[in-house]
Every structure is written in C-alpha cells, then in structure tokens.
Nucleic acid binder design. Structure first.
Lengths: 350, 350
DNA sequence: TTGTACGCGTTATCAC
DNA sequence: GTGATAACGCGTACAA
C-alpha cells in the first residue's frame, strides 16, 4: 500500500529525475526528433520509472486545440444509433480524433446537460440527433464558434449542416412494394405525426398510392400506436381485428421492426401459421433479428454507418465550406418471406 | 457571419463587462450567496450577453478534482453491456457524476487506447470489462492512484474490486431445468473455453448433471461454435443433425439467445413447426426479442442494470474500504414456451 | 463584500 | 540541442 493521495508526477518531476529541463521533456513528448538520442533515452527512462502520464486538461488548456468530438443520440440501446455512432467513430479515427458519446433518451433536459458538458470541455465540434424540432440552443452553440452537424433531422430552415435519411422515400418504397404485390388495402401502424419521421413516412406512403393512380384514404388505414414496440404492435392489431369483426388485414406496414414482430405474434395467435403466411408485413430499420425470425421480415434498411461517417466528415471539413451542407441518404428495401414466399431478389434500390 | 476564430470569452472578459473583478465573477459562479444581489445581477447579465461558458479543462486543472468516471465495455451494441452502462450512469447521477463510455470491441489495443485517454483526462475512476484475463495494465493504473473496478470478470487473483455474475450458477439453472423436464440427453452449443464465461457455464452444466446422479459425458454433448450468433447456431445444429443421420436433438442449451434463434430456424427448416414444438431450447441473456419470437424462448437472465449500479457504487465508496470488494450476482431462469408449452411459473430464482 | 495575485501542468518562444 | 520563462483560464487565499 502506497500513500493514498500522492500527486501525479508532472513534467517537472520527470525533468528533475532525468537531469534535464522541462522544455526537453516536452520536446521528447511532442517532437522526439528534435532532441538528442542520448538525452531522449534518459527522459524516457525517467518517464517509465515514474510512470508519468500526461495531464490532458493542462495540455488542452495550453494548446487551445482539441481532438475530441461530442455526439448526442436519442438512445444508445437502439441499434440504429449505435451503428451511426460507429460510423462517426470510424471517420474520426482517420484523423486520430476521438468520440465522446452520450444518450439524451429523447429528453431535452438531458440533451441540454450534455451539450453544456461538451461545450465546457471544449470539443472540436458536435454531432446531434435533436430531441425536439426547436434547434435554438443548437444555433446558439454554433454561433459561439462550435461547429454543429444535425443527424437524422434535416435542417432546411437553418444554415446548420445536416445528414439525414429520406423517410418519405422509405414510406414510398414500402408502400409501392405492397401495391406491386396486389394489395389495395393496407393497414399502416404508425407513430404519432409529432415525430417528424412518422409524418414523413406517411407522406411517402401517400405518394406511392397516388403514383399507382389510387386514392390514399381508400387504400391506407393508418392506426396511431401508443408505444412503438412489439407489445404496441400486438395490441394495435388486436384492436383492429376486433373493430373488423374478427377479420385480419391482408397487408400491414409497420413503423419499425419491433412493431412488426408484435403483429406477427398477434396474427399467429389469432389465426395460426396459415394466417401469418398469407398476410404481407413490412417493417422498418432492418434490425439484426429481422432476418432470423420464424417468418423473416421484409424491411426498410437505412444506411446507418454511412450516415455517421458522412456526418463526421461534414464536421471535420465544415470549416472549409461557407455554405451549410445537407446530405440526404436513401433507404433500401430488403425483401424477405414476410411479403414474398420465395424472395428471389433480396434487395432493391429505389 | 462573425469572425470565424474568435477567442472564447473568459472570466476576465465577463469581469470587465460587468465592471467587477474576476474574483467576484468566480464567486458568482461557485458561491453565489457570498456576493451582493446587485453585483450578482450585473455579473449574470454580462455572462448572458457575452454567452460565456466555463472552460472545463482550466477549471479541472486548477481544482484537481473531477466528476467524470470512465467505463470500457466489450461492445456497446450488445444489450447486456448497454444495460450495464445504464446502471452505472444511474448510480453516478446520484452524485452528479458523469460517465464517459467507450467500447473496446474485445480488442486489447482499443482497450489500451481508451485506458490511456481516460487516465490522461484524469478520471475519478475506471470501470472495465477486460478484454483478456491479463490485468497487468489495469493493476498499473490502479497503482498510479486511479481506482479500478472490474466488471463481468471476477478478480480472485488480484486485490482489485470486481462485480460479476455467477456463470456457473447460470449453467446449472439451465441444465437443471432441462433435466427436470426429463431430458437425459442435451446438446450444449457453447463458445470456446478460452472465454471464461463459456467455461464457467460448462462447469455449471456438469454440476447440475452430477447433482441428478448422472454422468456428464453421457448426458451432455457439447459442440463448440465458431461464431456465437444466429448463423453460428444454425450451422452448428445442421452439422449435428447431419452427423446423426438426420435425427434432431431432443434438448438444446445455447450459450446465448441469438444462437438459440438460429437453432429454432434450423429446426423449423428441418422438421417444421412440429419438430420445433417438441424440442426443448434454452438460451442465455434474455434479450428483448426472446419473449417476442414465434416460439418464446426460455432463457437465463442476468441482472445487468444492478451490476452496473453496484459497480459504480463500489467505485465511489471504494476509497472508504481497505479490502477489495467482490460482488457476485445470481442469474435467473425465465421459463417460456420453448421448453414448457404452458409456462405457469414464468420465472424462478435459484 | 470585493479586488489582487499566485499557482495548477503543459507547451511555445526565445536566448544560450 | 537545451534551458529558462511566459502564458493558457480559472479558483482561492489574502489583503483591502
């Protein structure tokens, strides 16, 4: 047991132990080639024996510059966001930058807390999946000189750069697929329209219907979910069936894969595997298990990793551009057995 | 467009704008009650108009103390670890501490990189799910005065505190359950024994068999997986069936739920729903979708959130104790339709 | 109650 | 090539 509260060794301690000046120690650490091999060896030996580690805060204070980027996503547990985060990290690694990641849980208060934390820390820039559509505080931060890139939220109203995915196209992809299979009556289990993505997907659905020369209100039966998970999908479909005298829908489009899994469960309980087999189901997000289900799920996949990578890219290159960049990625439909018994082409691009 | 590279305002700038001294500004920030309401108002007004934000590094450099804890897990995407991280965060929030989270991807090099990053940052302490069983570098860090708590890895050989879950008990729970259902021949799809958890679960399996008065090598047929995911489970079971002339096993214990999902898929392809229905399957981890599958999965659940919470607790209270604390949590069996057609008791504790 | 001056550990700038 | 020293922004003891 050593004394519990001893001070960390500083460059001065290292210099003393090596019999050189602090300047030389600093040079060994930052510009090793500008120092004689002999003294360098002495310094390195001292560093080892004292087990010296740099003091990051002091270093940052002096240099002003920093290599850390902050990112805030809605929910780390959601594979969509972890994939995005990994994309960010991979891009940052190319420039030897590191990522500080936080999860807002869709809570504006938590978001503010982390924003201030990151700003006080002096991050190089910020990548944010915003909780609300009000970006004032983000604009303020940007005006203070911290570059901000919006993620998964197009910022057409501001001059803040953004990277998002085309949810309208996603809705269109899913609906067009169901229409092409001959379904002229589709139940759409959607989230509330206060969520931008949900509203956009509905718009996309309508476009597909109109493109087929049909009327949206005759084809689409939209149901608003209370919770966007498996139990929510299960309950919503059960209620629909009850409202329709025990009849199940022919085709269902779900706002995400978990909801679709709930729908599958409800259909199986209500009419067994035969009912499940003859009902077309399309999910969203293409989560890992979507392909592993009893009835593999047709789903709309979003280029998550690329989104994160691109967002980090915009952030690092942003200073070179004068105008804000707005990148919109396109989703992709992955066709599986839940809509086609023998999926020949496993995926198509729009 | 303002000038792009202007300096952040400092307390001196605030003091000048408010017509007071830097000391008063500092007092307003840190001890608001020791300053006259009038001057405080002036300072706060200046802070607002300059949109001053504290410089974290300078603050930390001066104070020495810090409120950030670092944690490194194997894989953020794994729900097990995200739950643990959330437990950590919830505990830290009680003391107004914050978490910096990183994922090592089971790569010792990434682990080292983050360890040095955290140490240079001057974290309050470190919570680590170690990549390898060699903890030398962690011991070194601890000796430099940074408290370290091991997560999901018991450290009987060192005096480093640890929080883990009893994998032997988990193996016993699963196997005892299968034995109680009358299965005297069980296929165990396990990971390589170089992974401590896998080896421990095998030990637990053997104990259950011996407790039933049977011989492990006659009852347990262990197969080592190449990949511990759905496709790995699918392939391993397909190979087993091929080796046994097309016969499928009566009972399968899988090292995690994804493997079990692959097993379900293979069984359904090989012998349809009837075969699936009469095969007993037990998974591990109790991931979210386990309950949502076509055949809800019996699984061994680990108290993830509690583990993280407890680990953070040990870290924060660690300085008060002289001896290292070793906490071991007990897993829990969640019984579902994959082993029991009508699960009456949905869960039992050991 | 408010103002002044110093120090935290590092890096950069200059003499030597 | 190496050494001495100022400066980064903030907190705080001490003086006023």
């Amino acid at each position: 047991m050593t004394s519990p509260a001893r001070r960390r060794p500083s460059v001065a301690d290292v210099a003393r132990a090596a019999g050189v000046s602090v300047g030389s120690v600093s040079n060994v650490l930052n510009r090793p080639d500008t120092v004689l091999p002999e003294t360098r060896e002495r310094v390195e030996e001292a560093i080892r024996s004292l087990s010296f580690v740099r003091n990051g805060p002091a270093r940052q204070l002096r240099r002003g510059t920093i290599t850390t980027v902050g990112a805030i996503v809605l929910d780390i547990r959601n594979p969509f966001f972890t994939d995005v985060a990994r994309g960010i990290e991979d891009r940052l690694a190319l420039d030897d930058h590191t990522l500080m990641l936080a999860s807002s849980d869709d809570d504006p208060e938590r978001e503010s807390k982390y924003l201030r934390m990151f700003e006080e820390h002096g991050v190089l820039g910020l990548l944010v999946v915003p909780t609300s559509s009000a970006h004032e505080h983000l604009v303020e931060i940007q005006e203070r000189g911290v570059p901000v890139v919006l993620l998964d939220a197009p910022s057409s109203t501001t001059d803040m750069p953004s990277v998002s995915v085309d949810d309208v196209a996603g809705g269109t992809l899913a609906m067009a697929h169901l229409l092409s299979l001959g379904h002229h009556s589709v139940v759409f289990l959607n989230g509330p329209h206060t969520i931008r993505q949900c509203q956009a997907r509905r718009t996309g659905v309508d476009r597909a219907v109109e493109a087929a020369g049909l009327a949206p209100d005759r084809v689409v039966d939209e149901v608003t979910l209370t919770t966007m998970d498996a139990s929510g999908g299960d309950a919503a479909l059960a209620a629909w069936i009850a409202r329709h005298g025990g009849r199940a829908p022919d085709a269902v489009f779900c706002v995400n894969d978990l909801v679709a899994i709930g729908v599958q469960r409800r259909l199986r309980r209500h009419g067994g595997s035969e009912l499940l087999a003859r009902t077309a189901i399309v999910g969203y997000d293409d989560i890992d298990v979507a392909a592993e289900l009893a009835q593999p799920l047709t789903s709309v996949r979003q280029p998550t990793h690329e989104m994160g990578y691109a967002a980090a890219n915009v952030l690092l290159h942003g200073a070179e551009r004068s105008d804000a960049e707005h990148i919109v990625f396109q989703p992709e439909l992955v066709v599986r057995a839940s809509t086609v018994q023998d999926p020949a082409a496993s995926s198509t691009r729009p």
